[in-house]
Simulated scan of single mutants.
Amino acid sequence: MSQVTSAHGNAGGDRDGSGLPPVPSIPLADDLALAAASDHSIGALVKDATTHLSTLVRAEVELAKSEVTGEIKKGLRGSIFFIIALVVLLYSSFFLFFALAELLADVGLVRSAAFGIVFAAMLLFAGLFGFLGYRKVKAIRAPKRTIDTMRDNAAVLSRRGEHSD
C-alpha cells in the first residue's frame, strides 16, 4: 500500500485554508491492489484490512487532535479579552475599596481604622478564595479510566502480535 500523506495531496496541509496538518488516508482504489487481488490469500487480505483499519484509526485520531488544537487556539485568543477585562476589573476594585473605607470614615470611624478594616476584609477574602482554589487544584487527578483502557488495548494488541502463522 502506498502511503498517502493527505486527502488533499498537499504536503503543507494548508491549500484549503484550514491550517490543519496533513493526515494519513486510505486510497479509495489502488490499481496494483486491484490487479493482484486474485493472487492474495486470506492472510494477505486480513493483513491489508488490518493495515487499512490501523491507518483509518490513526487518521481519525490525527483529525481529532488537529480539530481540538484549532479550537483550543481559538479559545486562547478569545480568552485574551477576558484577561484584559479581569485586569481592568481588578484595577477598578481599588476605587471600590477606597470608597468603602471613606464610607466607614463618614459613619464615624477614625479614617485609619476604616482603611484598616477594609484592608483586613480584603485579606480575609483573598485567603478564603486562595484556600478554595487550592482545594480545587488539589482535587485534580490523572484520567485513570483512560489510562487503564489504553493499557488494556496495548496488552490486547501486543498479545495479538505474538501468535505465529
Rank of each mutant, 00 (worst) to 15 (best):
residue 51 T to F: 14
residue 113 A to E: 01
residue 111 R to H: 11
residue 75 G to D: 02
residue 124 L to T: 11
residue 94 F to D: 03
residue 47 K to T: 15
residue 75 G to H: 04
residue 38 S to E: 06
residue 121 A to T: 07
residue 29 A to I: 10
residue 91 Y to N: 11
residue 98 F to M: 05
residue 29 A to S: 08
residue 98 F to H: 01
residue 136 K to G: 13
residue 19 G to C: 07
residue 114 A to F: 08
residue 41 S to A: 05
residue 114 A to K: 00
residue 143 P to M: 07
residue 5 T to P: 02
residue 72 I to G: 11
residue 127 G to Q: 09
residue 99 A to E: 06
residue 154 A to D: 05
residue 163 H to D: 12
residue 94 F to C: 09
residue 141 R to C: 11
residue 80 I to G: 11
residue 83 I to V: 13
residue 164 S to C: 14
residue 125 F to K: 09
residue 101 A to I: 04
residue 36 A to L: 01
residue 121 A to F: 09
residue 20 L to W: 06
residue 156 V to R: 01
residue 150 M to P: 04
residue 10 N to W: 08
residue 39 D to S: 07
residue 51 T to L: 15
residue 43 G to E: 00
residue 84 I to N: 10
residue 40 H to Q: 09
residue 27 P to N: 03
residue 3 Q to I: 14
residue 133 G to E: 05
residue 46 V to W: 08
residue 134 Y to H: 11
residue 136 K to C: 13
residue 133 G to R: 01
residue 161 G to R: 09
residue 136 K to N: 14
residue 133 G to F: 06
residue 49 A to T: 09
residue 57 V to A: 13
residue 18 S to W: 04
residue 2 S to H: 08
residue 112 S to D: 05
residue 9 G to T: 07
residue 37 A to T: 00
residue 10 N to H: 10
residue 22 P to C: 14
residue 131 F to R: 02
residue 8 H to Q: 10
residue 9 G to M: 00
residue 97 F to C: 03
residue 72 I to M: 11
residue 21 P to Q: 06
residue 47 K to I: 14
residue 140 I to E: 04
residue 94 F to H: 01
residue 99 A to I: 02
residue 64 A to G: 07
residue 88 V to G: 08
residue 131 F to M: 10
residue 154 A to K: 03
residue 117 I to H: 01
residue 13 G to R: 00
residue 88 V to H: 05
residue 124 L to E: 02
residue 51 T to A: 15
residue 92 S to D: 07
residue 109 L to S: 03
residue 91 Y to Q: 10
residue 65 K to R: 13
residue 95 F to H: 03
residue 11 A to S: 11
residue 20 L to D: 01
residue 64 A to S: 10
residue 47 K to E: 11
residue 29 A to Y: 05
residue 154 A to S: 03
residue 121 A to R: 00
residue 68 V to H: 10
residue 159 R to T: 12
residue 146 T to I: 14
residue 150 M to W: 04
residue 146 T to K: 09
residue 16 D to R: 01
residue 99 A to M: 06
residue 52 H to N: 15
residue 66 S to M: 01
residue 114 A to Q: 04
residue 84 I to A: 15
residue 105 A to G: 07
residue 79 S to Q: 00
residue 160 R to F: 15
residue 163 H to G: 14
residue 22 P to N: 11
residue 97 F to K: 02
residue 11 A to W: 07
residue 30 D to N: 07
residue 164 S to E: 12
residue 108 G to Q: 06
residue 122 M to S: 13
residue 31 D to F: 14
residue 88 V to S: 09
residue 74 K to D: 13
residue 63 L to T: 03
residue 95 F to D: 03
residue 160 R to S: 15
residue 2 S to A: 12
residue 29 A to L: 10
residue 159 R to L: 15
residue 34 L to F: 14
residue 14 D to W: 07
residue 55 T to P: 02
residue 35 A to W: 03
residue 7 A to T: 05
residue 138 K to E: 15
residue 59 A to P: 03
residue 12 G to P: 03
residue 40 H to P: 01
residue 37 A to G: 10
residue 75 G to K: 00
residue 141 R to Q: 10
residue 40 H to Y: 11
residue 110 V to L: 08
residue 70 G to P: 02
residue 99 A to Y: 06
residue 46 V to M: 12
residue 26 I to A: 06
residue 45 L to K: 05
residue 76 L to R: 04
residue 115 F to Q: 01
residue 132 L to K: 09
residue 162 E to V: 13
residue 10 N to L: 09
residue 102 E to N: 10
residue 28 L to G: 11
residue 84 I to F: 14
